[in-house]
Design a protein around this nucleic acid. Sequence first.
DNA 1: CTGAAAGCGCTTACAG
DNA 2: CTGAAAGCGCTTACAG
Lengths: 331, 331
Amino acid sequence: MATIYEVAALAGVSPATVSRVVNGQRVSEEKAALVRAAAAELNFTPNRTARTLRRQNSEVIALVLPDIENPYFTSMARGVEDVARAAGYSVVLCNTDEDPAKEAKYLDIAISENMAGVVLAPASDHTDLQHLVARGRPIVAVDRSTRFDIDGVMMNNRQGGLSAAQTLVDAGYRRIACITGPRDIETAAERSNGWREIVTRAGMFDRPDDYLRYSTFRVDGGRTAMQELLAMENPPDAVVAANNLMGVGALQVLTETGLTPPAFGVAVVGDLPFTTLPPASVSIVRLPARHMGVTAARMLLERIDGDTQPARTVVLRNEIIPATSVPAPTV
Amino acid sequence: MATIYEVAALAGVSPATVSRVVNGQRVSEEKAALVRAAAAELNFTPNRTARTLRRQNSEVIALVLPDIENPYFTSMARGVEDVARAAGYSVVLCNTDEDPAKEAKYLDIAISENMAGVVLAPASDHTDLQHLVARGRPIVAVDRSTRFDIDGVMMNNRQGGLSAAQTLVDAGYRRIACITGPRDIETAAERSNGWREIVTRAGMFDRPDDYLRYSTFRVDGGRTAMQELLAMENPPDAVVAANNLMGVGALQVLTETGLTPPAFGVAVVGDLPFTTLPPASVSIVRLPARHMGVTAARMLLERIDGDTQPARTVVLRNEIIPATSVPAPTV
DNA sequence: CTGAAAGCGCTTACAG
DNA sequence: CTGAAAGCGCTTACAG
């Protein structure tokens, strides 16, 4: 693996000059030509590890996500990647599996590899960013907020749960349940808060929380929660699923039970991934996943470029697409 | 950011001793205790960039994939990640988008960051691995083979296409079409070869390839191809989709047309991601995505540990799950 | 077991 | 514009 010294020797210049050519600094055209020829001849690729060590800064951005198998997050990843690439950064994707220990490990790596910055969807609201912040590494939180005073890109989760529940009320369903993710994940709590507000206002239940299930933000979680709801003495006739994968799980169980929409109402906070359902059979709160990634990456790049304005939180809009208004069955 | 020198000074030992403690080498217990205390006090994290530069080897593995939004690949990624993590390596995911230029960029980065090795699903059969091979970096190809003499983990693609087509023949369909990915992607070509073999053997068409469509390995690709097939003068009554996403696209179009299985037969080479279809309504050739990742990671780790045996190719089995045998409609 | 010293491959003030 | 030299933070033969 050719080094800058070998290129310098072959070109008859100093290593400093080679470095300058590689980095596009002022060098006389004749020497530059010599260097380029030598570099090509030796198949020279600059060693990024050495560059990073010297510059104290690498050209990679870490994107730390809780579930890389969730299309919501991969879609966000595409947004981050497109913006970062255009600015000359590469993106490494780290999967925390919602596990604070794995997350801590990856954040440590981001520090010790001198990465340029981090876009993070925190695994819990206890995520510790002190090290990163203390070292002045730019961080942008996406999807979920943190206890630290850093930039963030969020959506209005309460509003999402609210719209989802309201659209089912409007369609005439009378017993609207909710399945959501772990309590300590902000998006899970807020979305179910929105749902609770609607069913309470409608006076739908004596004890609304009897119709609320906490589970994991995964297909299995949605399945389990849905099965529990259907097994209730007085089961619901509709459900708000607080994320895309839970929505899939709920729909699987409903399909297996022969209860497809609109016989049973379903509204999902999030887009159903790879759906083959008839169009508009389920109400969807569309989440701007890719756009969140784009926005987060832009904010991060601004910080990397030295922007020191106070921390900002951007809240993106989400949009409800109601199921085609087939009225709910009147029992 | 504390360095090894500061820790050494605080502990009253040499930097070499600190290094030895950090790396678990023989150090007297008293000095080790001193070092640990000092490290904790200063919140010391070893600088991986420096370590990598010195050792000429990092503890990260690159996983280079053509489409990070395809659950087939993210599932593979989980397999790689789990094995790699257990061995102390972290995995960085790189998305090439089936673009050879992006792929080349990431492979360059893998070299210049001194990564320990690469697991690669090549974007095309022209992928150039010369640099990597010349530098002796271990590489394992997954899903698709290369022109280079390296380890690989594949599946029997022709067999997959063959089983998918055969199961539709067995169910009684008479005009079985095929939609597949780009010609220059090995898996696309081989799976359609399997299909062609079956329909030819069955004497199903005068010119089988009239019922073959090449498109992208994405949902859109499946949609377009399916629409074209349905618009034919003499349309098919069943289709083999050569990958999971094309299968989704085809099913979307069929659903929108009111032609759901088994009215129209569908067999997919690959698992339908996040499906909400009634169980067993579509025939599926299950692909061992996660297992491929696990196998590839293990092979890579062996090479990283210095194994020099000749290159191996492992071919994993795939398994057909036929749709419940509702007979096809007899026209 | 421990330390002094060299070196991994770059970049970048500093002089000229 | 160009080069000599120092230094980024580690690790690791080499001596002792």
